[in-house]
Design a protein around this nucleic acid. Structure first.
Length: 257
DNA sequence: AGTACCACCTGACGGC
DNA sequence: TGCCGTCAGGTGGTAC
């Protein structure tokens, strides 16, 4: 989600209030529930007025009439450019503006998706997305997560519970709260859950402040050096790697009980 | 109903 | 040098 917030800021700085002349779809696979012709017709001669982020989704208002929805998967990004030499290598969608610039939806692994929606609430309801991780207050957080029965890591990553936490940020939150990623939700005390909530917000805010660039995060963050054989920034012990409901979890067995 | 896990896709990387 | 297997990460579908 911090990356998506950075894309939102980039989008707002580059692509608002410019007439769209044409849309090119280079990889149809990224279109979700819409056809290429539909998207082209919808965007032609319109303009982006503003954008909003919810979890990992970015919503761009198109002339106040409807929303263009972006989901970036793992490798998606945006690039605003003019010269051909600046065209990104895996652009799946290009939006051509009247001013000669283009906005590219670049996505090497094609896990990203683009679609059209009419209201954010309707879209969130259809996807059954939880509240945004930066917006949710503790009582709502507790209630949402309390309905789960699996591991704390998979609950944090479940977009229906809270929207916005991915694999690497769930690791960071649990590392800083000193909770083992395999711990069951029911075994977490209220006080620790409160810490999870406040650490979640602080970590996401810190990540955004650092432009979602892992190498500029504080040195005591697990994410600063999330690689095989890394040492724990707390105790110097070896960081372990395990699978938790199919995802790779990095954690310190000594600090996270 | 809810949880676990694989497929999707591509490039990087390690091993032989 | 080069080929092959493995891995990464988010989501959606499927299996349990």
């Amino acid at each position: 989600m911090p990356e998506v917030q950075i894309f939102k800021e980039y989008f707002d700085a580059t692509s608002l209030d410019k007439e769209i002349v044409e849309v090119e779809v280079k990889s149809k696979e990224i279109l979700q529930k819409i056809t290429e012709n539909y998207l082209k017709a919808k965007l032609k001669e319109e303009e982006f007025l503003s954008s909003q982020r919810h979890g990992k989704y970015l919503f761009a208002s198109v002339s106040g009439k409807f929303l263009m929805v972006f989901h970036f998967g793992m490798t998606g990004s945006l690039k605003y450019f003019k010269a051909q030499k600046d065209e990104p290598p895996h652009d799946r969608l290009l939006i051509n503006f009247r001013n000669g610039y283009q906005l590219a939806f670049n996505d090497q692994r094609k896990f990203g998706r683009v679609t059209i929606a009419y209201t954010i609430d309707e879209f969130l309801a259809e996807k059954r997305l939880g509240k945004d991780a930066l917006e949710i207050n503790f009582p709502d957080f507790k209630e949402a997560i309390g309905k789960k029965s699996g591991t704390v890591k998979s609950a944090l990553m479940d977009q229906h519970v809270i929207a916005g936490i991915g694999n690497i940020y769930s690791d960071e939150i649990l590392f800083q709260t000193r909770i083992n990623p395999k711990k069951k939700i029911g075994e977490i005390e209220n006080k620790a859950l409160k810490e999870v909530h406040s650490n979640m917000r602080r970590i996401l805010e810190t990540a955004i402040k650092n432009h979602a660039d892992l190498q500029s995060y504080p040195r005591n963050y697990l994410l600063y050096n999330r690689v095989r054989g890394a040492k724990c920034p707390n105790c110097g012990g070896k960081i372990a790697i395990v699978k938790v409901s199919g995802r790779t979890a990095y954690f310190c067995p000594n600090c996270q009980k």
